[in-house]
């Protein structure tokens, strides 16, 4: 069952445009995410999934339109947003333990000049327990595998005690074990908070997804996965590296076609 949409949305985008160096990455995107919804953003590389997540975090300002989180400005509301970044650059020699990294989720809750408390410790411990990463807590972060590190990053986001959880490609670059843990965890978490994740492949998690958004510069589809046009549903089963030759997406199939299906 999809959660009710009668209350105010936690995330609301109205006619949002975004650009890097004057070239538009997102055009005219509008969507609403309600409490306890699990939303999957899909679409090709460069389609704007990461850009949309950056907008939701205030890391990027829209060139047009409005982003509202918890009914207010992003910069204020993001204290209640947990964020799991897509891993790109990383210093393997950085001398910090998994525990110290997960505890960084408490930063916003403990302002300047205020040390972490025992309560923070308990929250971090619970978050690591939930992601199955507590046994890694003494390990240096650089010695962990991609999947182990991803679980620590999810624990860091949960340590925020967020009302909204944003995950950028949480299932890429992880081993099968971590993938299974994350795929089981997200539906469970979505009973407590709104979740927006970007992903190349939603495959196994799809039955739990309430809304799917297909981004290719514009939001070509946003709604329940079951009601998506066939050309988009087809991409749910596509492998991680979506490749138009083997798995034609709605765009290579001809955008007009999608527009037609949406109409």
């Amino acid at each position: 069952m999809s959660p009710p949409e009668d209350r105010a949305p936690l995330i609301a985008l109205r006619d949002v445009w975004a650009a890097y160096d004057q070239s538009d990455v997102l055009e005219n995107v509008s969507l609403e995410v309600y409490d306890r919804q699990l939303v999957a953003l899909i679409g090709p590389n460069g389609g704007g999934k990461t850009t949309l997540i950056k907008l939701l975090l205030g890391l990027l300002t829209p060139t047009r339109g409005q982003v509202s989180i918890l009914g207010g400005r992003v910069e204020r509301a993001r204290a209640q947003v947990g964020y799991v970044p897509q891993e790109i650059r990383f210093d393997r020699e950085f001398p910090v333990s998994a525990w110290e990294v997960a505890r960084m989720g408490r930063l916003g809750r403990r302002g300047l000049l205020r040390p972490y408390t025992a309560q923070d410790g308990a929250i971090v411990e619970e978050a690591m327990e939930r992601t199955g990463s507590l046994h890694l807590r003494h390990r240096p972060i650089g010695e962990l595998s991609g999947g182990e590190r991803q679980r620590v990053y999810i624990a860091r986001a949960l340590a925020v005690q967020p009302r909204i959880l944003l995950l950028d490609e949480p299932l890429s670059n992880v081993d099968p074990e971590a993938r299974a843990i994350i795929q089981a965890l997200l539906p469970e978490l979505s009973q407590q908070m709104a979740i927006v994740m970007s992903s190349h492949d939603v495959g196994a998690i799809l039955p739990h997804v309430h809304r799917v958004g297909y981004l290719h510069q514009r939001l070509l589809y946003y709604g329940p996965p079951q009601q998506a046009p066939e050309t988009i549903r087809h991409t749910f089963r596509c492998p991680v590296d979506m490749d138009c030759e083997h798995c034609p997406c709605p765009v290579c199939a001809g955008e007009e076609h999608v527009q037609e299906a949406l109409a």
Partner: peptide
């Protein structure tokens, strides 16, 4: 360690 995450924590 992670400046972007720190920004999101204000």
């Amino acid at each position: 360690y992670d400046e972007t995450f720190a920004i999101t924590r204000n």
